[in-house]
Design a protein around this nucleic acid. Sequence first.
DNA 1: TTAGGTATGTTACTTTTGTTACACAAAAAG
DNA 2: CTTTTTGTGTAACAAAAGTAACATACCTAA
Lengths: 210, 210
Amino acid sequence: MKEILEQAYGYIFEEALLLEIEKVAIYKEFKAEEYLIEIGDYIKSMPLLLHGAIKILREDENGDELLLYFLERGDTCAMTLTCCMGKSKSKIRAIAENDGAMLMIPVEKMEEWLTKYKTWRNFVFESYNIRLNEMLEAIDTLAFMNLDERLYKYLTDKAKVIGNTEINNTHQQIAYDMHTSRVVISRLLKSLEIQGKIKLHRNKIEIVAL
Amino acid sequence: MKEILEQAYGYIFEEALLLEIEKVAIYKEFKAEEYLIEIGDYIKSMPLLLHGAIKILREDENGDELLLYFLERGDTCAMTLTCCMGKSKSKIRAIAENDGAMLMIPVEKMEEWLTKYKTWRNFVFESYNIRLNEMLEAIDTLAFMNLDERLYKYLTDKAKVIGNTEINNTHQQIAYDMHTSRVVISRLLKSLEIQGKIKLHRNKIEIVAL
DNA sequence: TTAGGTATGTTACTTTTGTTACACAAAAAG
DNA sequence: CTTTTTGTGTAACAAAAGTAACATACCTAA
């Protein structure tokens, strides 16, 4: 664990903090598709992502979903920060995009380190900033882009996160993430294929040029 | 100034912190419609809103606007926090919704107080939380609601913020805030009037029941 | 009082997105 | 090797939102 921690966070945290993390953190592995946080959960520990990717979803009263953004190595979830500090329930759902691992930090430590370590404080604020910017990007996408553009962005973003230009998804799964219907996604994917931007296969979409 | 500060923030900050704020803060009044922050601005001080309301807007590359949320008394702008800490440019525009006043805190103090005062730390995190939740709400609105519902929400939100069920706005101004066209807004307003939810006048919209 | 600017109302039409229904092909299960 | 399930393609239609054009009403300033 020491090595992985060093590898993912060594360049941001000072030695003393790394040692403390090592002492109290719980190492947790997860599998693709695993539900990590459900809406309404109380969160008692804060995750530091070591490897793998996690997708963060929002849901409305009718159970309709919308993908907000992805978390990657070195990320933590600002919603978790929010919930830890404010002791409120999670307003989002987190699902593993692929296999991965993370460290769980108890809430008390999180608060304690804020005064004790400048690098931790910076990390926490930096995380908030990144998350706010991701949210702004999500808003831009919704407000200013058409569905076909949003779809292409979805595909390329996903390709970046999983590090592969081949995306193993059904049209239905994409429709859920984007909060639209399967027919619409099929239609737009077909038109992207005609434009030469992607190639369609069963259960697989290939991005021609990233 | 001491009284206004006491009135707006007395119940959250401890005495010592209030004294420090009083010492370093610059009192600034603003008029309705005044541009307080422009996209691309570097922000060197953090505002604490005393009274009045401020609207926060997002803009895309084409200059199209979208209202994100309103700030009220006791609020601060998380974007400012982001920019102060990260020393990056503002990604949003802030315009005074009506006359008001705020205190400007130098960035250095903001950081210093984080370790010194627990109430300040709580306030800063609480601000982040509120802002993240406002952003989530904005996303919900965009993703899950139709334009007519969004419009009605816009009107009622605005009425709450300005504390008046009469909204002095042209259809064109609303169209800018909601990133759509004047014709569409006129159409939907007319249908809200027929439903008996609002009454239309020149330069003024009256909300029948809040 | 009139001319010009501004705000609103309305029609007709287009584009985008959502919905229903069904055909067909690939994969999985028996 | 059949049957069933799952994933994709497509047509036809409906609803929502965007656009262009113009009429009319109100307000203000000459």
